[in-house]
Every structure is written in structure tokens, then in C-alpha cells.
Design a protein around this nucleic acid. Structure first.
Length: 578
RNA sequence: GCCCCCGUAGCUCAGUUGGAUAGAGCAACUGCCUUCUAAGCAGUGGGUCGCAGGUUCGAGUCCUGCCGGGGGUACCA
């Protein structure tokens, strides 16, 4: 059933309720209990007296004292006292605090897992254009999204992790034409490489691969390519679009091959990168498939049927301004092509059609302007827009020392996620990202990350896990046999505090999941590790007295288990030795 | 101009949805390894919570207005 800590909480509520009906019959109040920050304020605290003081027109401190006086006795409560302005602080007995150790040992990996919750939930994250390697900004979205999904799953939700592949549209065309131009270069048919095409070396790599596989099959004279393309100087974007048009024309069916090859290469690289980073998906959803199956057209038709589409200047507009957006938006251009927004409408409509009851989109902060229009479209389609949550991940600014590293995907001059992982390490990387809330801009100093990689907080947490493992090796016994040991020898302040900390784990999972805040878990684990290290330094675990030794080992194993459970959610390894 | 996010210790950041004397890590300084891993521990110093009002028993937290930083404001994705 529920965790011991929650049982104790409801137990205390019952005690307070009894006292309340004795002190102030007929006065109703929602009894709140919280965990005080300051250990001097006990294990639980209630502001009940402060809440009812106004109605009773009495000094809250006096009410608190009377409530304390009327509290029924309990074997779990060591001390209850009025404090401060009128708080009632509870200190639990050692038995109540150490009970959690047995719970942890009994449930193991499942300790802290929330009860199964109704509904199906989707977390969509990263969803980067497969037009080049992932960069450090994606790394943040990946760390956040993956940890959030794990957290929600552990909290009891059914979760589907999804990557939306933007495999349709202009950006993919630009990648394909960039590849082709590099390919032509190899054969001496040099077309000036546009500054707004993809500059990265990986484009040259793909060009070489195509040459090795198919020789000169795709070569056309540079003069023919440039023949009827608008000049670069006049309009760089028109020039690039002209090159794409010419490429499609000259290559015919072969264009699809180059397009497909570039897509497959980049997507494979992206998947491998994320896998190495410990980020796994249940579903890779293709944007192109929305077009192929007619879902984009259907979604726009549906909007049209509902009367939310109008024609202007040859384009189809969605009346999003009627649904909270600043202005109306084009869904189908004058030239007949659908906009990105159109496929986004179809995509989100499809998410609902697949039965998700809660949809969490993790987007880069630069997309925040899309929230209103996407929600507006859902509403216009008669869907529950409130079921869509958007978590915005703010930008990562990369620094080398004091110098800001400029990041441009097209220019190819950026630090990739892979480079970052190699320099800093996967575990440190993921943990570092989670040490700041995703909705705040992050300055990531590479020099600092490297210099700090040795005392990165992640190692602090992992070290606690390794230390306990090491002690267990020295002890030589089977940790499983500790499940039923007598915990009475545990009475030290640090031991009880550590046990009390463990008992907050299930609550932490609940609130962190509800807040979509995996960073709260990272901070909590650091606190747990700190309490353990403090205890470890103050007391010896492998003492001569057997009863005490076993009790301490049981506590240590429980700590190790909870650290492992937490790190697993964050996608960080829990090493047996360091 | 309008919209969104942010402003907390020298630096990087938390702050339990309005609670008690605002906390960590890093950096600085002082101690602790012949005993289970010193990637550790114990301690010291460090604050006008951007500014000014307001709401109430009580504000870092909620409201309004300024100041400062970032992002957005396309028939791009």
C-alpha cells in the first residue's frame, strides 16, 4: 500500500483532528502538515492554530498550546509542542523513523514507486531537425525530457517517450542540396557553397559516402546547376531555393536517394548519440508520415468544416486569433504548400487520436510563441487544449572561459553534444543539466565543466553509493539477510535523521512528478548523500557489536538502494566502486 | 511597441506552491587520513532576495508599476 511516511502523516492528521474537535468544537479546517526545513522544528509541523486563530479571535500561540494539550497519545509521537507564532511541531519516535528501512529493503527497486495512476501520458522531447549533430541545447532538452519521463513513469503514470522527426520540409531539402553540392565539389564541379547551406564537415562525409557507393552517377556540370538560379547576392534564400529546385529537376528520382541518404545518416547519428547518452524512446514519429497518410489535409479540412479557416491573398489562414493567439496564422501557402504549423496541428490532433490523456511537449524556449496557436488549434478542433502542457527549456549559452561560443547549426561551428559528453562525461553531463531548472537560461562554461568534472556533484552522490558497496564487500555478508534485522540499536541523531530522510523519498517523487521537476530529485539525492557522508565519517559501520553492526548495515543498504533508485531515474550510473 | 522567461552570497543555482533565524555547491580560510574509499568530514567568513508600492497574522514566493538580462513577434523550421 502507501508508504509508511504517508501513513504517519494521516495518523498525525487524525490526532490533530481529535484535538481540534476538543478545543474548538464545530470549527472545521483543512489540516496541513509539512516537513520543516529546520530539524529543530521536529519531523512534521502544522499551522492549524494559525489558520483558525482569526475565526476564534484568539492568540494563535495559545490555541496551539491547548491543541497540544488535547492531542491523544501515540506510540509514533515522541514529542509535540507549540512553537514560534503558533506552529505545532511533532517529533517522531525512533521506531516510527526507522520503520522505513524495512520498507526500503522489502521493496528494493520499487521503493518510492507511486501507485498506478489512470490515463496515458506522452512526453515528446528533443525532436531536433535531423540536419546535423545534436548540440548542447539539445543535451539539456534530452536530460530534462528523459528524466522527466522516467520520473513520471516511476510516479505511477503510463508514459510514452516520443521523438518527432522533422523529415519533411525545407530544412531537409537544404541538407540534401548541401550534400549534393559537396559531392559535386569532389568531382571538380564547384558551385559556390551558399553561406546559408549546412557548413559542417559531416556534410562532406556524406558526400564522400555517396561517391564511394555510386561513383559519378549524380554529377552534373556546375554551369548547368547555376544556369537559372537567382544570384546569391540578390537574395540568399531565393538562391538556395533555386538550387534546390534545380537539383530536383536535374536529378529526378535520384534526388530522393540523396534526400533519403542524408536523412537516414543524420537520424541514425542522432539516435546513436541519444542512446549513448542514456536517452531512450518508445516512438519515433515521422512528420512526413502525416503528409503521406493525408492527416495534414484532414486536419485542415476539419478546421475548415468547423468554420475556422478563411482565404486571403491566395493562402489559407486559421483564425487562431479567436482562440487566444495574437493574430491569425497561415496553414497553407499561396503555392499550395502546407506550413510547418499545419503539420503541427495534424501531429497534435494525432496525439489525441492515439489516446493520450496528457501530452507534455518539451520545446526550446524560442518556440514559446507556438503555444498559443497550437492550443488554439486544438480548441478549434474540439479537443481539450488543457491536456497539452508545454515545458520550455531555456537556452544554453556555451562559454570557453569568458568567451562566448557562437552557435549556429547551419554554420556548423558549434560544440556538439557528443563532444560535450566526451569532454565532461555522460553522468556529469546529465547531472549538471539537472542542477538548474529547465526554465532558466543556463550558462555552460566548458572550461569550468572540465575543471570541475572531478568534483562535480554527481560524483558526490555516486561516491556515497560506491562507499556503501565497499563496506558491504568488507563485511562479506549477504545484504538480503539484513531485511529483517532488529533496528532498535539505531538511535543516534544522524541515524534517525538519515532514516527520516529516506522516508521522504516517496513524497519527493510525487511532488517532483507533479511539478515536472526532475531537478528536485537531483538536489534531494545530493542532500541524502551529504547526510550519509556525515554519518559515515562520524560513526563506524562495521562495529564489533553484532546487533549494532547489522542495524547500521541495514540503514546503509537502504540508503544505497534509494540512491540507486534515484540515479536510475536521472539516467546516471550507480557504481559499486570508484 | 506587444508577448513569454528570468533577476536570491564573489560564481553556479535551490527555496516544500504564502510560513518560523533565506539555504546548498564552487571559490576563500581553519582543522581531520597507521581504523569500513579524503571524489569525504567538521568549522569560519560571505545577503538591501533588482527597485518601489500593494494584498494579510506572515511575502524571496501573490498583484501593480518601473529597472536590467534573455527569447519571441514569418506564406522559416
Amino acid at each position: 500500500m502507501s508508504s509508511p511516511s504517508i501513513d504517519i502523516k494521516s495518523h498525525l492528521v487524525a490526532l490533530l483532528d481529535a484535538a481540534l474537535s476538543s478545543v474548538a468544537p464545530g470549527v472545521g479546517a483543512e489540516i496541513q502538515l509539512e516537513r520543516p526545513r529546520d530539524p529543530a522544528h521536529g519531523d512534521f509541523s502544522s499551522n492549524l492554530a494559525l489558520q483558525i486563530a482569526k475565526g476564534l479571535k484568539e492568540n494563535p500561540r495559545k490555541i496551539a498550546e491547548r491543541l497540544v494539550h488535547e492531542l491523544p497519545r501515540s506510540p509514533w509521537v515522541l514529542k509535540a509542542e507549540a512553537a514560534g507564532a503558533g506552529f505545532i511541531n511533532f517529533t517522531l519516535t525512533a521506531v516510527a523513523k526507522t520503520a522505513v528501512i524495512h520498507a526500503v529493503l522489502a521493496r528494493g527497486e520499487q521503493f518510492g514507486r507511486g501507485a498506478k495512476k489512470p490515463g496515458r501520458l506522452q512526453v515528446e522531447f528533443v525532436s531536433a531537425n535531423p540536419t546535423g549533430p545534436l548540440h548542447v541545447g539539445h543535451g539539456r532538452g534530452a536530460a530534462y525530457g528523459a528524466s522527466l519521463a522516467n520520473l513520471l513513469s516511476f510516479a505511477g503514470f503510463e508514459v510514452c517517450r516520443e521523438f518527432y522527426v522533422n523529415d519533411a520540409g525545407r530544412q531537409m531539402d537544404i541538407l540534401a542540396v548541401s550534400t549534393w553540392l559537396r559531392y559535386l565539389e569532389i568531382f571538380g564541379e564547384t558551385v559556390p557553397f551558399p553561406p546559408n547551406a549546412y557548413q559542417g564537415d559531416y556534410v562532406r562525409t556524406m558526400a564522400r559516402q555517396i561517391k564511394e557507393a555510386h561513383g559519378d552517377r549524380y554529377v552534373h556540370p556546375a554551369a548547368a546547376v547555376l544556369a537559372c538560379v537567382p544570384p546569391l547576392e540578390a537574395d540568399a534564400e531565393a538562391h538556395l531555393d533555386g538550387l534546390i529546385a534545380v537539383a530536383k529537376d536535374l536529378l529526378g528520382e535520384d534526388w530522393n536517394y540523396i534526400h533519403q541518404h542524408a536523412l537516414a545518416e543524420q537520424l541514425a547519428d542522432c539516435r546513436a548519440d541519444l542512446e549513448e547518452y542514456g536517452v531512450h524512446y518508445d516512438c519515433w514519429f515521422s512528420e512526413k508520415s502525416l503528409y503521406d497518410t493525408g492527416m495534414v489535409a484532414q486536419a485542415i479540412d476539419e478546421l475548415e468544416k468547423r468554420g475556422h479557416i478563411y482565404l486571403q491573398d491566395g493562402a489559407k489562414w486559421f483564425r487562431s486569433s479567436h482562440f487566444g493567439d495574437e493574430k491569425d496564422r497561415v496553414v497553407q501557402r499561396e503555392n499550395g504548400q502546407y506550413t510547418y504549423f499545419a503539420s503541427d496541428i495534424a501531429y497534435h490532433r494525432n496525439k489525441f487520436a492515439r489516446g493520450f490523456t496528457r501530452i507534455i511537449d518539451v520545446w526550446g524556449a524560442d518556440h514559446h510563441g507556438y503555444i498559443a496557436r497550437v492550443k488554439g488549434a486544438l480548441q478549434a478542433l474540439g479537443l481539450d487544449a488543457a491536456a497539452l502542457e508545454v515545458a520550455l527549456v531555456q537556452f544554453v549559452s556555451l562559454y570557453r572561459g569568458h568567451e562566448k561560443v557562437s552557435m549556429s547549426t547551419r554554420a556548423g561551428s558549434y560544440i556538439t553534444l557528443r563532444e560535450l559528453r566526451e569532454e565532461v562525461g555522460n553522468d556529469a553531463c546529465r547531472f549538471f543539466y539537472l542542477l538548474s531548472k529547465q526554465d532558466k537560461p543556463l550558462d555552460f562554461d566548458l572550461e569550468l565543466a572540465k575543471s570541475q568534472s572531478n568534483d562535480n556533484p554527481v560524483y558526490y552522490v555516486q561516491y556515497a553509493h560506491a562507499r556503501i558497496s565497499s563496506v558491504l564487500r568488507q563485511w562479506g555478508g549477504d545484504p538480503a539477510t539484513l531485511a529483517g534485522v532488529d533496528l532498535a540499536p539505531l538511535g543516534g541523531e544522524r541515524e534517525l535523521a538519515l532514516a527520516a530522510k529516506l522516508s521522504t523519498f516517496p513524497e519527493l517523487i510525487e511532488t517532483a512528478a507533479a511539478d515536472r521537476a526532475p531537478h528536485a530529485l537531483a538536489f534531494w539525492l545530493r542532500e541524502l548523500a551529504a547526510e550519509f557522508h556525515g554519518w559515515y565519517n562520524a560513526e563506524r559501520l562495521l562495529v564489533d557489536d553484532e546487533a549494532q553492526r547489522l542495524a547500521r548495515l541495514a540503514l546503509a543498504v537502504a540508503v544505497r538502494q534509494v540512491i540507486a533508485n534515484g540515479l536510475r531515474i536521472l539516467g546516471v550510473a550507480a557504481p559499486e566502486a570508484m
